[in-house]
Computed example of a mutant assay.
Amino acid sequence: MKAAVFLMLLAASAMAQQVRVTLRVIEVPHPELTKWTAGEKLPGSELHERAVKLALAGGAEIVDTNVLIARSGEKALTESIAEVIYPTEWEPPDLGGAQLPLDAKQEFPPILRPSDFSFETRHAGTLLEIEPMVSEDGGFIDLRLAFEMVDLESLATWMEFRDEWGDASVKMPIFDTRRLTSAITLVPGTFELFNVFTPKPAAVPAAATRQLVFVKADVLPVSKP
């Protein structure tokens, strides 16, 4: 009986704990990252401090910062997105049972309209999903995390077309996607280097920078005033 009561009190205590997760992406020159990681094994907090100092001095860039709170053992999700709608498949027009001439079947009809296409929607922006779990003694936080950054890099003209209102060309988007799904054990209040992304600009075969993903989790006990 006492054991059951203890477990109930422990569960209630865990549910009363909230975890604030901070995820920060800092883009640094590749040589700087190589220098930081080539010698001694620096802790994540030291790497984060160096990256922030470099960004404040103008030698790096803070790309993104996300903050999200969830109760221990529960999931939370935040999105900052724009919906990008684009054509994906050409659908021939309905000719009411009529057949195209044989030579016309071998190539596209002379006029294609935007209404002849199927469209899809892609979310461009930032997505962060977390599921933290505070250990019984509060000394560690097990964090499951899914993070995604999608940028609309450019629009490529797939088919030129003009209608009575002007340019109605069909354009295809080019997306740059960085995605991370993993789990990590953190000491509360301390940044850790979780991942390194390699950006791939279209004009640069091997990017000269790296995007460092830092994550920190803080326990925020819920107490009555």
Rank of each mutant, 00 (worst) to 15 (best):
V219Y: 02
A206C: 07
H123T: 04
A14K: 13
L128C: 03
N195K: 06
V187D: 10
A4C: 12
V19W: 05
K224G: 08
A217D: 06
N195Y: 11
L112Q: 14
D142E: 14
A60T: 06
A55P: 02
G44S: 01
R71Q: 15
M15C: 11
W36P: 00
E40D: 12
P43S: 04
V28E: 01
P201R: 05
E40Y: 12
L220K: 09
E129Q: 04
V52A: 12
E46C: 03
P87D: 01
E49I: 04
I69F: 10
G59S: 03
A11F: 07
Q211L: 02
L152P: 07
A208Y: 10
V196Y: 01
A207C: 11
D103H: 11
T65L: 03
T65E: 14
E49D: 14
A4K: 13
G73A: 07
H30P: 06
T157K: 06
R122M: 10
T181V: 11
G189D: 12
A38L: 11
A202N: 06
N195R: 08
V213S: 02
R71S: 12
P43C: 03
T185K: 06
W158H: 15
M159E: 10
A124V: 09
A3I: 09
V219A: 01
D137Q: 05
L54A: 11
L186T: 00
Q18S: 13
S80A: 14
A3T: 12
T22K: 14
A82V: 14
V222K: 08
P201D: 02
Q99D: 13
R113E: 13
T88P: 07
A11W: 08
G59T: 02
K41N: 08
W36G: 00
L112K: 10
D94C: 05
A202C: 04
V215N: 04
W165H: 14
R179G: 11
A156C: 09
G44T: 00
S45T: 13
T88F: 02
E136W: 07
I141F: 05
R24M: 12
V187E: 11
P225E: 07
P173T: 06
V21S: 01
G44Y: 01
L54H: 06
